Amino acid sequence: MAKELFNRYVWLIDMLQRYGRLTRREIDELWMRSEYSGGRPMARRTFMNYRQAIQEMFDVNIECDPSTYEYYIEDPEALQGSGARVWALNTLAVNSLLDESQELRERIVLENIPSGQQFLRIVFEAMKENRIVSLSYRSFRRSTGTRTWVAPYFVRLFRQRWYMVGLNVTEQRIKTYSLDRVTSLELSDRTFVYPEGFAPADYFQDCFGITHGEGAAEEVVLRVPALQANYLRTLPLHESQVESERSDSHSIFRYRVKITPDLVQEIYALGFWQAEVLAPRSLREAVAARLAESLSHYGPSGTTPGGSSAQSPV
């Protein structure tokens, strides 16, 4: 019953996000088409209870315009962006939609997130109680694992992997740990003081990906073919993205970011879209070098890496 109530709250938020403003009659029409109605309209008292529960649970205020009697979300911008509340609501909305569409389950293909989710509960508990964790960690760069003590500051989800960011107690510096490379994780009795004024959202503000980088942010300028520019418009590379030029042949995008390995890797991949780095020169040269190295693995045109002529399959 609790899960069903939760899904109803999310349904109401989702409807108001989707349509913007709705009268009670319009909400009821949509409600009657949902699986939650059971063929019965939503009573006024029920609707008011849902409004109050949504405000208390999600800090989302549903207001009514007295001139039109339309209901709307007071601050829709607060439900945009990449915050934890937004992520949770979006996830719940998708789960609710899937629950409504059980007859289509064979036609819905989801992407698996295999990254160390089994350790998330321990990490969350450690963050709540400001307790240091003991973990065994095996980096992809090493053949053996290491044991260390970390004060977890925050977690971040990026490209299907959960990351824990915190203070390495031994080295006394903030480091990032991918939970899918953690082999064991335990709470300790040791506690830490969360640094005053530390803002997780600001920590990666000028970064792409999960690498923090020590250098200052620089202006990165990319020239992208017109077709591929559509992808960057709908899914920006970074929140600082600005499209400064647009034509039938190409667009120019500008960013304010730190030059980190994650950024170089991403722009290297964009190179296969024929994206060109215009600035800074150091990044242009780094991406060009990686593209040249990749091309060298294919050998001379028409031959395989071993030197023999390539033949069509029989």
Rank of each mutant, 00 (worst) to 15 (best):
M48L: 15
L89Q: 03
P66F: 07
R147E: 15
S249C: 08
R51N: 10
Q55E: 15
A201T: 03
T304S: 14
T260A: 07
L291G: 06
V257G: 01
D14Y: 07
I122K: 13
I73A: 06
R24Q: 13
E186M: 10
E35L: 11
A84G: 08
L270G: 12
A217D: 13
E219V: 13
G271I: 04
Q228V: 00
S37K: 01
Q265K: 10
E77G: 08
N61G: 05
Y137C: 08
E56L: 15
R138S: 05
S143I: 11
D248I: 00
L295G: 10
K258Y: 02
V257K: 02
G145T: 12
A286S: 11
V287F: 14
R290M: 15
I13D: 00
E125F: 06
C207F: 01
P305F: 03
N90P: 08
V133L: 07
E218W: 09
L120Q: 07
E56A: 15
S294G: 14
R161H: 08
E4I: 01
S143A: 14
G39V: 04
Y19L: 06
V264D: 08
P313W: 03
V60D: 04
R24V: 08
Y177S: 02
D248Y: 00
V165P: 10
E77H: 11
N130Y: 09
E63W: 11
G38K: 00
P200T: 06
Y163H: 12
Y231C: 03
Y71E: 11
R45E: 13
P236V: 10
W31C: 02
V242L: 14
